[in-house]
Simulated scan of single mutants.
Amino acid sequence: MSRNPTLRQRTINQFIDCVLKNILTFPLPPLITLADMFNVSRTTMRAVLVHLSDTGVLNQVDEQYYLQRKPTEQDKMNGIFEEREVQDQHFENYFYHLINSHKLLPGDRFDEIQLSKDAKVNPIVVREFLLRFLHYGLINNYEKGKWALIIVDKDYAEKLYEFRSILEIFALRSFMAQKNDHINWTKAKELLQRHKNLQQNINNDYTLFATLDRDFHQLILSSNNNPFFVQSFDLISVIFHFHYQWDNSDLKQRNSVAVSEHIAVLSAMLQKDETKAIAALCKHLNTAKMSMRESIDRSLKIKNR
């Protein structure tokens, strides 16, 4: 029996989720491998296997465990667990950090179980996060549990730019239509000040722009309160906000320009000048598109040397 019942219960539920999502294969790998996969001790993992055998989910034959019946949600344990939203946010931040810090590059392959261990989240959190990008052609599931990051070409970038422009201009119009006492106006003022602070120290702090950029575009898109906008922003963020940053030859200059363009958009928004705000946003989006195209061109030249 595990000395930490909460940990044991959490691992049981994670194990059941993995079975339901067909992440695990049977017979199960050795105990030490399972314990490593779920980031628990062998004592805890053994207690989980014993419990699932007692409830008829698993069947032990000699030293191996087989699936005797498919578990259901009713097989899960009741207990106090970390909120799923917390895990989702944690892994999203972790995954973007891997890209932004150049630890995950175009063409790289990665394992979802290893990612879940490194990020210390449920493997289901990792898989469902990655599946969100699969149908966009951003990543490729080349083998069960194995993924690869796709290299984006200029044609893909052009099409995404068209989609992004329509999305953000529509969202900006919704933002401008909000009541004067809406909390988003306060957020816009705070965001403008953060941009001005960064602009004053851009030579030393230009790498801090990544978070600011995400907050800027997320604020605009959040005004519409449309879940499809939020989902689309995930794709846009990965490609425009991170992908072109894999070429950092002009990162300081690019971020300096972007900060100035953000300030122009936010200033026009706070002046309640919709026409001026939309024009400033269009200019910024076009700059982002050109930056990505130039980065892709440079990457192709390096590759073809």
Score class of each variant (00 low, 15 high):
162 E>P: 00
170 F>R: 09
208 L>A: 06
222 S>A: 15
47 A>Q: 08
242 F>K: 05
132 R>N: 12
40 V>E: 02
270 L>Y: 08
256 S>T: 15
224 N>H: 11
304 N>T: 14
34 L>W: 01
175 F>A: 06
236 I>S: 07
231 Q>G: 08
179 K>V: 00
80 I>T: 13
49 L>A: 08
108 D>W: 10
39 N>M: 02
126 V>W: 07
305 R>L: 06
15 F>A: 04
200 Q>D: 04
206 Y>Q: 01
265 V>G: 04
172 L>A: 14
101 S>A: 11
165 S>P: 00
95 F>W: 10
236 I>Q: 08
271 Q>P: 00
259 V>G: 15
230 V>F: 11
276 K>R: 15
177 A>K: 15
169 I>F: 01
42 R>V: 09
256 S>A: 14
293 R>A: 06
25 T>W: 06
213 D>M: 01
189 K>P: 01
98 L>A: 08
78 N>Q: 13
98 L>C: 05
136 Y>W: 01
67 L>G: 13
70 K>W: 07
300 L>H: 13
59 N>G: 03
217 H>E: 03
262 H>M: 01
285 L>W: 11
164 R>G: 09
96 Y>R: 12
144 K>D: 15
10 R>E: 15
139 I>D: 10
26 F>E: 02
191 L>Y: 05
154 K>D: 07
75 D>Y: 02
46 R>E: 14
40 V>W: 02
26 F>S: 02
184 N>R: 12
217 H>V: 00
51 H>N: 12
98 L>G: 02
198 L>G: 06
191 L>H: 07
40 V>D: 05
234 D>N: 09
53 S>E: 13
79 G>S: 05
132 R>Y: 04
223 S>D: 03
41 S>L: 05
299 S>Q: 14
179 K>D: 09
145 G>R: 04
153 D>M: 02
204 N>M: 00
82 E>F: 02
234 D>W: 08
231 Q>Y: 14
16 I>R: 04
211 T>C: 04
38 F>P: 03
194 R>P: 03
133 F>K: 06
125 V>D: 10
115 L>E: 08
297 D>W: 00
227 P>K: 06
39 N>Q: 13
159 K>W: 01
159 K>T: 01
102 H>V: 02
104 L>M: 02
190 E>Y: 00
119 A>I: 03
75 D>T: 05
